[in-house]
Design a protein around this nucleic acid. Structure first.
Lengths: 120, 120
DNA sequence: GCTATATATCATTCGTGGCTGATATGTCGA
DNA sequence: TCGACATATCAGCCACGAATGATATATAGC
């Protein structure tokens, strides 16, 4: 159809699944609030709990997930663990998504296909 | 903590939820396979079904979701409906995610917090 | 050692959303 | 108008994963 169809390299299936899995990691308001809190610099778990309003166990669970996925890095300092974003491109990603959300993906809010429970 | 903490504008809660919802829209291998197929140019539903291997009703459901969210645009041509990506930045987003996946988010594959069923 | 604080883990509950199969709508050709 | 094809909608099932509450580990101070 498109004249440059040959220039596009189709993504193989396992990579597709991995991308989906990474997006799933970001598809949670709690995890996003943690990532957003960490944009300002490293924070201990207690500070993250205070900032985000999540319960301690819930925050810890999400931090484990984010850490395993490689999106954040934790470092033990005394009896505190300080977490930070692992890659500045995470910020780029969030900015890009913000743009899309404002300009073209405006329908997301109204989309009934998934409700995402904890919404405004 | 960080010296430029004041420069970071914290994202408000409803925006957080919307971002999460947009990510959720992308957090599905079926929808990603549709978006990936459309990177080469507009396709009819039948062609999408053939390319992705999804069932007809499943593809149609995902297309409705993607369309409602504003990520794809459908145009009726005769008895066919041709869908295309609504914004080239979707491509940028996928590329950026690919980079993150390769370099820093390598742990996603092993993350046990969510299994994502349809995986390699 | 004991206690307090900080964080992690575990089991359970429960809502959500993806897939399937059947059916409905819509559009073209004869 | 009728039949064939293309797409959309709908109901039901089932698995996944987010949140909670309780408990376990770990580190520091006394």
């Amino acid at each position: 159809m498109s004249s440059d169809a040959e220039l596009i390299e189709r993504v193989d299936v396992p990579t597709l699944a991995l991308r989906a899995k990474l997006f799933r990691g970001l598809a949670d308001a709690s995890r996003l609030s943690i990532l957003d809190a960490l944009r300002a610099g490293p924070l201990s778990v207690g500070e993250i709990v205070a900032t985000t309003g999540l319960s301690q166990s819930n925050a810890s669970n999400h931090l484990r997930c984010l850490s395993e996925c490689g999106l954040v890095v934790g470092e033990q300092r005394g009896r505190f663990v300080h977490y930070r974003l692992s890659d500045p491109r995470l910020d780029d990603l969030l900015v890009l998504v913000g743009e899309l959300l404002r300009e073209t993906a405006c329908g997301v809010k109204a989309c009934e296909n998934y409700r995402m429970s904890q919404q405004s």
